[in-house]
Design a protein around this nucleic acid. Structure first.
Lengths: 349, 349
DNA sequence: TATTAGCACTCTTTTCATCTGAGTGCTAAC
DNA sequence: GTTAGCACTCAGATGAAAAGAGTGCTAATA
């Protein structure tokens, strides 16, 4: 009999066989099937006994009395943690070059989501990198017309933001030049966290009568930096969930797809992922483990990529619990590397 | 007997009753039901005769022998064109003020899509205005670091675009200033169509050794202007289609929702709408009439809004053919007016 | 003692026939 | 021209029966 905490070799083999079979077929797995599936030569009766034990221990369960067994969340967890073996497998596109290089971060990320969906047949999402703890690279104010100026703010990683600012007056070229000087000499290279109230006060003082403008600019900077607000999320293949009957009844489909359309929940997911401990590995959330309730019948696998200068983003896939974890993790890793590579290498053509 | 081309008064009344009843219930309408529903006092038998005629003429049909009648596309078309009467109805939010004012076009449009979905229970989309035939308001080049400059391009309507340009060299402040002067004096206020090859040549000549930079900038302008590429589409309530059984079988749902995720088809729809004749009214596409095949089982209703300076965008809703056309059209009109108003009135707080 | 064969039992799924009800078209009467 | 009435059609509901998958348990076996 298996001790409380550790399963016998044989039970592990059987559990693994059950899960793998279930991943393939999506059907509950019975003892007969397993006699053929495992290398151990055992009768169905023996296997039945083992399965009964595994059920008692909570790794598998029966959807109804006369059916085979299905892995429980606990079972999947064990599988992902210990039983799974890395498959050697190719991505359907050429090894290096899932992604085309372009200078638009946005394009790359959109494409990443697509590639991921195409390669896995699950729903995918890619978050834009978060500007948090990022540095200010450059600020430029320009007069657009009599009462408006535009502030262009370039962040590390060449993320460009801009904001129209209403000023009650027409500023002279000189003034603008001076303000630009002032802002740039003071702020360039600063990380967001370094811009303190004291610093702001000092800046305003130096700006003299134009302190108001400076105020607006800094407001813009603050606004632009605001994390949640800014996170873009690109999705693809949301309708892949229709391929999995366990997720495609109206109720579930409705919920999941809404989450993909609204994106707020995905944003939460990303935030959570990035906040978690080893945010550079691959994370697997099975069912309830995911930080958003909508995903309680799904598994979510995420990876973090790094876009240089500390900007991190998340790529992830959402699918049924009976997901091809190996393939998914492998694919995510590949993509993660590509993203890391694209931006950390020589950024020029 | 009805003449070939024009239906008798009575037939029209009956047709209208059939359609209205079907819009409400979603069930085929039988002759018994109609005896109660219309003011004409007729027996079911008489109505049956009329219905048989209407069926021969192609306005209604039976899903199967022992069922009531359902409007055909032709029937809906007649209804929308002639039979429908404007309902007096309130939008669920306060009359004036579906939309909050913000300075971000993007925000407004997103919100518009949401409001529309909330008010109609259909899937909705809002396209960003197209920059076509737009004017260039302002260009600003700034050095970001040794080898990169950023071009900020402000279009009429305060749409701001930017693009990093790699230059092999460090440009002096003076040079930048000169280039900025050159670009702005030449280009400001120009409509996109006015920038000709000749003009470009002239500009490059004037730029002297920096003609390459000018070339890059103009490339950027061209790229930014490229219509299709740039059209943003915001959607909301895609999952509303699950509320209508006739659209929510896996196959249809999959297709429609994909269209909403990918957006390419919606973009086509928008392009088509804007291109069509009376692009300021409200357009109704029933079934096959819609320019995208995915919508063949839906009805699509669109309206065009104008954001000032000739920039037009489209708002639209997609739902089942048995759609509450009156409500939808009314809501669209309201929103259309609000959008027109927000941007054409005094744009400040 | 661990394994296995065998069997009774449970429960879902499928199939098939029957029944029901809505709605029609047609005919004959008004 | 309208209506009452009736035979007919067909989708959908209902329910019984059969099939099939899989189990748990017991008793035999190695």
């Amino acid at each position: 009999m298996a001790a409380d905490n550790t399963l016998s070799e044989r039970k592990l083999i059987i559990l693994k066989a059950i899960i793998q079979n279930y991943l393939e077929t999506g059907e509950p797995v019975g003892s007969r099937t397993l006699t053929k599936y495992t290398d151990l030569n055992l009768s169905s009766a023996t296997i039945r006994n083992e399965m009964a034990d595994l059920e008692d221990l909570g790794y598998i369960f029966q959807p109804h009395t006369s059916a085979g067994r299905i892995p429980s969340d606990k079972g999947y967890r064990l599988y992902v943690d210990m039983l799974m073996e890395e498959k050697e497998q190719e991505i359907t596109e050429r090894e290096n070059g899932l992604l085309e290089k372009t200078d638009k971060v946005e394009q790359v990320l959109k494409q990443a989501a697509k590639v991921l969906a195409a390669n896995t047949n699950y729903a995918t999402m890619v978050s834009s990198p978060i500007n948090n703890r990022n540095t200010l690279k450059f600020i430029q104010l320009s007069q657009v017309d009599e009462e408006q100026i535009v502030a262009v703010i370039v962040l590390g990683g060449n993320v460009i933001k801009n904001k129209i600012i209403e000023v009650g007056e027409t500023l002279s070229n000189e003034t603008l030049l001076k303000l630009n000087m002032l802002l740039n000499t003071t702020l360039n290279g600063m990380s967001i966290d370094q811009i303190t109230l004291g610093l702001i006060a000092r800046l305003k003082e130096q700006a003299g009568i134009h302190s108001q403008v400076v105020g607006h600019v800094l407001d813009a900077v603050a606004e632009i930096i605001h994390v949640e607000d800014d996170m873009q999320i690109y999705t693809s293949g949301a309708t892949n969930i229709f391929k999995y009957p366990e997720l495609s009844d109206k109720q579930s489909a409705q919920e999941i797809i809404s989450a993909f359309e609204e994106k707020q929940q995905l944003a939460d997911l990303v935030t959570e992922t990035l906040a978690s401990e080893d945010s550079h590995g691959i994370q697997v959330y099975i069912g309830d483990e995911a930080p958003v309730k909508t995903m309680k019948d799904c598994s979510v696998v995420t990876a973090t990529y790094e876009l240089g200068e500390g900007m991190k983003g998340t790529i992830g896939i959402i699918g049924p619990k009976r997901m091809d974890y190996e393939h998914v993790m492998k694919t995510l890793k590949t993509l993660q590397n590509e993203l890391d590579a694209i931006y950390n290498k020589d950024p020029k053509e």
